[in-house]
Amino acid sequence: MYDLIIFLVLLTIGFTFGRIAEKRHFQSIIEREEELRDILTFSERLPPPGFSSARTELVSGNVVISIDYFKRIAAGLRGILGGRVTAYETLLERARREAILRMKEEARVFEATHIVNVKLETASITKGQHNQTGCVEVYAYGTALTPIKQEPEKS
């Protein structure tokens, strides 16, 4: 009986707080994406033409993000029925976008205009009960290119 009560309480807490947190996170992601739109990211291996001389810097961003209790249960049920697991889809989307944003924020410090060869790496950190994924880490890294402006003064 007590187990059931605890379970229901956790479920409600997970549902309400998880939902609020996710909404807030998406809001902040959208705002910051707008702010950092001028830094262009590419998955291409080489810098675009016209960057024959630029300062390069390895930039990276990472985030560890956890799923809430309600979604974990919902995903567990989905595992029985099969189909799209939206609970994990949003989790990974949030993590990837956040990691890319952090990478861009680091690039902003170097006054970079482009980031090339962006790689994304995903790893699940903890395995919860029944070997379910508890939280994921997403790591984004790439090479930031900063055009050199002082070139004409030197010659």
Partner: peptide
Amino acid sequence: LAGLKNIVGGELKAYTELLTEAR
């Protein structure tokens, strides 16, 4: 702390920092 965060969901800042340091 992470166990508690696992209930409400969201970022686990301690882990993020740990992994950054490790890298």
